[in-house]
């Protein structure tokens, strides 16, 4: 996973990778939360391009970050999710919590 904070846009970009299961999500959230509290970003961008697997633990990871960001007035953007990841996101109703961008690739 790689994190990058852009000061001008106040966006925290998190490039997730590999398998987002319960085991991995537990480790990632500590790292993401440290960056969230350090920068208080306006937008948290979660990039799924390199994610090969996700179950409801990945959904829990998104929901947990939403709960942190919402009181700060922040938003979540999800980008580059594969068809399979998009299916899980849709099943979980994630479009209600986050902006889901298709075909970004940047």
């Amino acid at each position: 996973m790689k994190l990058h904070y852009d000061t001008s846009s106040q966006e925290l970009l998190v490039r997730l990778d590999g398998e987002l299961d319960h085991h991995r999500s537990a480790m990632l959230r500590t790292e993401i939360d440290a960056a969230l509290y350090a920068h208080m970003p306006r937008i948290l961008v979660l990039d799924f391009q390199a994610v090969t697997f996700m179950d409801s633990s990945g959904i829990g990871l998104i929901m947990g970050r939403y709960k942190i960001l919402q009181p700060m007035g922040g938003e979540i953007r999800i980008q580059n999710a594969s068809a399979y990841i998009s299916r899980v996101l849709k099943l979980a109703g994630m479009e209600r919590l986050a902006q889901i961008c298709e075909g970004v690739n940047a």
């Binding site: 633990s57 829990g60 099943l91």
Partner: peptide, 14 residues
């Protein structure tokens, strides 16, 4: 408290 989404059964059923 562990960021569980509560969607495990819904996904298994789907």
């Amino acid at each position: 408290e562990e960021d569980r989404a509560g969607l495990g059964f819904a996904i298994m059923q789907e």
